[in-house]
Design a protein around this nucleic acid. Structure first.
Length: 515
RNA sequence: CGGGGAUUGGCGCAGUUGGUAGCGCGCUUGUUUUGGGAGCAAGAGGCCGUGAGUUCGAAUCUCGCAUCCCCGACCA
């Protein structure tokens, strides 16, 4: 696309000097020819990642059939390939949540408006983006209903009804569901009006154990993103301005996308007694005293898919981490009508299926080269090519998506080779992403340095006075740079002053532009 | 919500001063092919985003609306 525009410009210039109709017609023909040639260079037929990241992103998620637009503004259809990816992510995280004693359950999507309005900060934060049900048929409802933007209120309401004794604590519930937040700017997976997520809600008898749970959930995310999605994240505390509406403390998980922008991948909140007081979540302690409980909540969404796309992707399209890839190994038969080719391909498939890998054979009538490009665009970690020449030598060609390299492997060694390779790819992807993040994270002392570094596409760690005024001033003067998280390990030392106001610094925080 | 751009077979696009639509890719059938996007031959496929208006006549002109993209504002 990009090159087409350039070609057009060239021809426009020519045309202004020589405007005869016949010339413009011949030029149009050459434009078409040029277009065909240049588009072949963009193997996956998508925009260049570095030149135009936003266009690259939407091209990629649409062309790889992860999703499509829904008919209503801001909505998205998750297509089978995208949903298979989501299911793998969800199933892995679900096991981890269960190992942390979260029990799955399901609460209604419709929430009485009075519930949301019970917690002042909560309603103030969410009101502008609530979808509201006011009628059934033509009859107005006595009380309008909100489509859940999150479920603290309705779960709080129900737990208040169930909870009696301290012996029932901690109580930890999780649900996988959809929520609606009517955002003004939307992009597939990154921010959609409706999205899928999990939300964990936990209740504790005291502040200390609730705070510990909020932190443990945060570390759980850090480990999950690192080990399963190969995404190195930065964890820490959110500022007052950025914290969840109704939370005492919000911890966040931030990941660096390929263009240097930050993506909030999940949050864990210590809610203190705000919701327990709003919803009368009380229990009787061992001294027969009724006490308000302390609660936490934690959530992450289909945005994880956006993070995978923009952390690992390249100009050929997706690069999916083996642990969650819908297809881990794609087998491409070459000259598949020749005797023995499909047999060998099927033998390889069976061997790998026995090891419980997700493996498929592309038996379509397309040319091998077309299949190579297709599966590279779709981000399949490993491709095995097998043709008559290989069969003669009892071998096959194994291609790895992350490094774009190909090796010859003996057929009888394929199990071991693929097992090792999938593990290697997972680790290499994490290592590469970590290197990028570390290279592009810079510590600065002054506002000038901060601006320069952020504009170069970096995460910037800077000392800050922790006041909202400075935070907003920085945002206004820098075209949208915001605080992301204050990493726990970044300690303020004596003499550190706020990058904005010069007063003594209270925290060191990551500043970046965010999605 | 403000500014700009877009919407024409599945996809990408062309369509001149208004006269009822074309191209490339893809698709179907046949055939030869198959180691980095195959060739030939014959076909199918369009309420020109949507609703009004102007006109003898609208893909084309005017206005509204919807959706998408970019930049802001807003935003766990």
């Amino acid at each position: 696309m990009k090159t087409t525009i350039i070609v057009d410009k060239k021809n426009d210039k020519k045309n202004t000097k020589d405007e005869s109709k016949s010339n413009s017609k011949t030029n149009k023909k050459t434009v078409l020819k040029d277009k065909k040639n240049t588009e072949k260079k963009f193997v996956a037929d998508i925009a260049s990642l570095l030149e135009n990241t936003p266009k690259w992103y939407t091209d990629t998620v649409l062309k790889t059939e992860l999703c499509d637009y829904g008919p209503v503004k801001g909505t998205m259809v998750i297509r089978p390939y995208g949903f298979a990816l989501w299911e793998n992510i969800r199933n892995s995280l679900d096991k981890i949540l269960k190992s942390r004693d979260y029990q799955n359950s399901y609460f209604p999507m419709l929430i009485p408006s009075s519930f949301i309005e019970k917690e002042k900060e909560h309603v103030a934060g969410f009101a502008p983006e609530l979808a509201t049900v006011t009628h059934v048929g033509t009859e107005p409802l006595a009380e309008k209903l909100y489509v859940r933007p999150t479920s603290e209120t309705i779960i709080g309401n129900m737990i208040a009804k169930w909870l009696q004794s301290y012996k029932e604590l901690p109580m930890k519930l999780n649900q996988w569901c959809n929520v609606i937040r009517w955002e003004k700017t939307t992009r597939p997976f990154l921010r959609t009006s409706e999205f899928l997520w999990h939300e964990g809600h936990a209740v504790f008898p005291d502040s200390k154990s609730a705070k510990k749970n909020a932190l443990d959930d945060l570390y759980m995310y850090e480990k999950f993103f690192r080990e399963y999605l190969a995404i190195p994240v930065i964890i820490g505390q959110k500022s007052e301005k950025e914290k969840f509406a109704g939370a005492e403390i919000t911890y966040g998980v931030e990941a660096m996308m390929k263009d240097g922008k930050s993506l909030q991948l999940g949050t864990s909140h210590y809610l203190g007694q705000k919701f327990s007081k709003a919803f009368e979540i009380k229990f009787q302690d061992d001294k027969k005293t009724a006490r308000y409980a302390y609660t936490t909540s934690v959530g992450t969404s289909t945005r994880m898919i956006a993070a995978i796309v923009m952390t690992h992707g390249d100009d050929r399209g997706l690069v999916l981490p083996p642990r969650v890839a819908p297809i881990q190994v794609i087998i491409v038969p070459v000259a598949q009508h020749k005797p023995g080719v499909l047999n060998t391909a099927n033998n390889i498939k069976r061997t790998l299926l026995n090891l419980h890998y997700r493996v498929d054979i592309d038996e379509s009538e397309n040319m091998p080269g077309w299949k190579f490009n297709q599966w590279e665009m779709k981000g399949v970690p490993v491709r095995i090519e097998v043709g008559p020449r290989d069969i003669e030598n009892n071998e096959c060609q194994v291609f790895r998506r992350d490094l774009l390299t190909k090796e010859t492997v003996k057929l009888n060694q394929i199990e071991q080779y693929v097992t090792n390779l999938l593990e290697k790819i997972q680790l290499t992807m994490l290592r590469k992403a970590t290197e990028v993040r570390d290279q592009r994270t810079e510590e600065v002392k002054t506002f000038t340095e901060l601006c320069k570094s952020v504009n170069a596409g970096n995460f910037v760690l800077a000392p800050w006075c922790n006041c909202t005024a400075c935070e907003e001033a920085i945002k206004n003067e820098t075209n949208g740079v915001s605080t992301r998280v204050a990493p726990f390990e970044a300690k303020v030392v004596k003499g550190d002053v706020c990058v904005k106001c010069g007063k003594p610094a209270k925290v060191k925080t990551i500043f970046a532009k965010a999605y």
